[in-house]
Simulated assay, not measured.
Amino acid sequence: MTKTERTLEIKILTEEQAMQASATRFLDAWNKGEYAGEYLTFTSPGMFFEVINARRWDLVVKLQKLGKTSIRELAKQVQRDVRRVHDDIKILIEHGIVEQDAGGICVPYDTIHADFTLTAEAA
């Protein structure tokens, strides 16, 4: 059995767009009967940057390189205070970007793609 590569697509969409995209993805996955990736949707750039700031993005990048590790080791690798790293990891876990089990924390995705568009109407 081959391992399915996990992908996470992060988007900023209006609530209406997010609902439509979710329905479309569900129907596509249902009809094809195969893994269609995982999605994280924010309804504004402000919400996106509240969750994924520069410090947290650095943690995600480092975790992808390290693989499963402890919060203490991650803090050591990024040269940050363990408590601050723990706080940031907790938020990333709540949003499904990082996973934790008895063996440690990890980014379970082989690929993460962030996509959003700013238009004059939204500005």
Rank of each mutant, 00 (worst) to 15 (best):
34 E>G: 10
20 Q>I: 11
86 H>F: 09
22 S>W: 02
100 Q>W: 01
15 E>V: 00
119 T>I: 06
113 H>D: 15
101 D>Q: 05
45 P>F: 10
11 K>R: 12
7 T>V: 13
53 N>M: 01
49 F>Y: 15
6 R>M: 06
108 P>F: 03
30 W>P: 04
59 L>W: 02
108 P>T: 12
54 A>M: 11
108 P>S: 04
17 Q>H: 12
29 A>P: 08
123 A>L: 15
6 R>F: 05
83 R>K: 10
95 H>M: 02
103 G>W: 08
119 T>D: 12
61 V>Y: 14
13 L>V: 07
36 A>M: 03
3 K>D: 12
107 V>P: 00
77 Q>Y: 05
42 F>V: 02
3 K>Y: 13
112 I>S: 11
83 R>M: 01
5 E>S: 15
110 D>P: 02
90 K>F: 05
119 T>M: 05
86 H>S: 15
101 D>I: 06
45 P>W: 11
119 T>G: 07
9 E>F: 03
88 D>G: 10
96 G>P: 02
102 A>R: 06
120 A>C: 01
43 T>C: 06
44 S>T: 09
114 A>G: 03
5 E>L: 15
48 F>Q: 03
2 T>W: 01
108 P>K: 09
120 A>H: 05
36 A>I: 04
114 A>W: 00
56 R>I: 00
3 K>I: 13
31 N>H: 14
5 E>D: 14
